[in-house]
Computed example of a mutant assay.
Amino acid sequence: MRDIVERTRESVPGKLEITHEGIVHDMMRPGGPHELTAARVSRRLERVMPDGLLAHTGTPDVEDVTEGVMRHPDVMVIAEADMEVEGSFDPRSLLAAMEIVSRSNPDNDWVGKVRDYPLLGIPMYVIFDPRTGTGAVLSDIHSTPDGPRYATRKDFVYGEEIMVGEWLISTDRLPRYA
């Protein structure tokens, strides 16, 4: 599946990712509110994180070849040293992954990635939902009969401060979809 994604990535609109169920195709490219949310969250995190850590919003993907899963978080908290690799990032090197919920495919962020990110060993997953002005911080991976899952969920409303790892950031003035 990875070969298919690599060959078609430039010729199809939107974003392609790989899950156990197959290829996820988010048809729409992220728009202004989505990108502004990612930029503001990234900037707010980088103001409070120590040197050597980034709240990265670019490429590449994160991939666990043995699990057959390749995802692309909107924002990744990662050490600069862990970015000095060719190809995809090791998902276990991320301290957190953040997603801004897609208007066209919200289940990808609220269902698929809630399942995949603990499987990939990403210790914290933060969801920002511009459709509703709400979100959630998921953490504390634990084993279940269906595989690893997050044990702790803290919901928030835009305007509140949230903890991302050990860093407190505001969710004030995050844009909403019209």
Rank of each mutant, 00 (worst) to 15 (best):
D3E: 15
I4Q: 13
I4W: 14
V5M: 13
E6L: 15
E6C: 11
E6S: 12
R7D: 12
T8K: 12
R9L: 13
E10G: 15
E10N: 15
V12S: 11
G14H: 11
G14I: 12
K15A: 05
E21D: 14
E21Y: 11
I23H: 09
H25G: 02
H25M: 08
D26K: 13
M28I: 11
R29Y: 11
R29I: 08
P30R: 14
H34W: 06
E35Y: 07
L36N: 05
A38D: 03
A39K: 06
R40W: 10
S42Y: 02
E46Q: 14
M49D: 02
P50E: 11
D51Q: 07
G52H: 06
G52W: 06
L54Q: 01
A55P: 01
A55V: 03
H56F: 10
T59D: 15
V62L: 09
D64M: 06
V65N: 07
V65Y: 09
E67T: 04
P73C: 12
V75P: 00
V75W: 04
I78W: 03
I78E: 00
I78R: 03
A79M: 04
A79K: 08
E80S: 05
E80Y: 09
A81P: 03
M83P: 02
S88W: 04
D90L: 08
R92K: 15
R92I: 07
L95I: 06
A97L: 07
M98W: 04
M98I: 14
I100S: 02
V101E: 02
V101Y: 04
S102E: 04
S102N: 07
R103W: 07
S104G: 07
N105P: 06
W110T: 10
W110M: 08
K113V: 05
K113A: 06
V114M: 09
V114H: 06
V114G: 03
R115D: 00
D116Q: 11
Y117N: 01
Y117A: 01
Y117E: 00
Y117D: 00
P118Y: 11
L120T: 04
G121H: 13
G121A: 13
I122A: 05
I122S: 04
I122N: 03
P123H: 11
M124R: 04
Y125S: 01
V126G: 03
V126F: 09
D129K: 05
P130F: 04
R131A: 09
T132F: 12
G133Q: 10
T134G: 10
T134M: 13
A136G: 14
A136V: 15
L138P: 02
L138D: 00
S139W: 12
H142Y: 09
S143L: 10
S143T: 07
S143I: 01
T144P: 06
D146E: 12
G147K: 01
G147F: 00
G147D: 00
R149C: 00
R149E: 01
T152G: 03
T152M: 05
K154A: 15
K154I: 14
F156W: 14
G159E: 08
E160L: 13
I162N: 03
M163C: 12
M163W: 15
V164Q: 00
W167P: 01
W167M: 04
W167G: 01
L168I: 14
I169N: 02
D172C: 13
R173C: 10
R173F: 10
R173H: 13
L174Q: 08
Y177Q: 05
Y177M: 05
A178Q: 06
A178E: 12
